[in-house]
């Protein structure tokens, strides 16, 4: 019914190439950070950088930026399910 594709006017070759540059720089950063041997903090930093990369891919490459509220909101559901699943599993593992 909706033939028009919402919001694609904003996407351009330039946006995508900037996104890719940022992704490559972040990939380099995560390798560089690993060389610093920060111990326990390194996993946190690695996951933060990975999540930032994932967010860039989702937001620009996967067009989440241009989508309706449903997509943005619904996306939180699997993340919440995963967080709770891992959190409750750790309630067992941590205190066993």
């Amino acid at each position: 019914m909706e033939r028009k594709h919402e919001g694609h006017e904003a996407a351009s070759y330039k946006t995508y190439i900037f996104t890719w540059t940022a992704l490559v720089l972040l990939a380099a950063a995560t390798i560089a950070v690993a060389e610093l041997h920060m111990g326990a903090a390194s996993i946190v930093v690695a996951l933060l950088i990975a999540s930032l990369k994932a967010a860039l891919i989702l937001y620009f490459f996967m067009h989440l930026r241009y989508e309706k509220w449903f997509f943005k909101l619904a996306f939180l559901l699997p993340i919440l399910v995963f967080m709770f699943s891992i959190g409750f599993t750790f309630l067992d593992v941590l205190y066993r």
């Binding site: 409750f88 309630l91 067992d92 593992v93 941590l94 205190y95 066993r96």
Partner: peptide, 11 residues
């Protein structure tokens, strides 16, 4: 099954 007491109480 042998899960921790903390998690048993919360579950």
């Amino acid at each position: 099954s042998g899960i921790s007491d903390t998690s048993k109480a919360i579950f």
